[in-house]
């Protein structure tokens, strides 16, 4: 995997030992080791997307309040597209409380009047 810590883009070689410890090779710095472990165990991503708003064509921008498991991105996007927000909406308003059982909420990132 490629480290995203800086433009170096170190190629990380992550292996899981029999005792469960994870080793990261190829990282040029400590940040790479931390990133490699996280990506190997439970890769996570912030999701930013668009949600329909009732009665207007312009969509509403939304995000996951924190990162969600990478494999859940597709489900999260589907849940966002399936929901329709009611204006008015303010930045930070929770639109979906616990999206796809991740425990993470979907919040508005722009205002809709």
């Amino acid at each position: 995997m490629t480290c995203i810590g800086c433009p170096m883009g170190c190629q990380l070689d992550v292996t899981k030992e029999a005792d469960g410890t994870i080793t990261v090779k190829g990282a040029g710095c400590g940040r790479g080791v931390i990133y490699g472990k996280q990506e190997a165990v439970a890769p996570q991503r912030m999701v930013t997307a668009l949600m329909p708003v009732k009665g207007r064509s312009r969509p509403l921008s939304v995000k996951t309040a924190t990162a969600v498991p990478k494999e859940k991105i597709g489900d999260v996007l589907a849940a966002i597209a399936a929901k329709c927000a009611d204006a008015p909406v303010k930045i930070g308003d929770v639109l979906i409380a616990d999206v796809c059982g991740t425990g993470v909420s979907i919040v508005a990132t722009s205002n809709a009047r």
């Binding site: 995997m1 490629t2 883009g9």
Partner: peptide, 12 residues
């Protein structure tokens, strides 16, 4: 582009 964007927008 930023390395992060290459990984998270293309590689992913």
């Amino acid at each position: 582009g930023l390395k992060r964007n290459i990984v998270q927008c293309l590689d992913d």
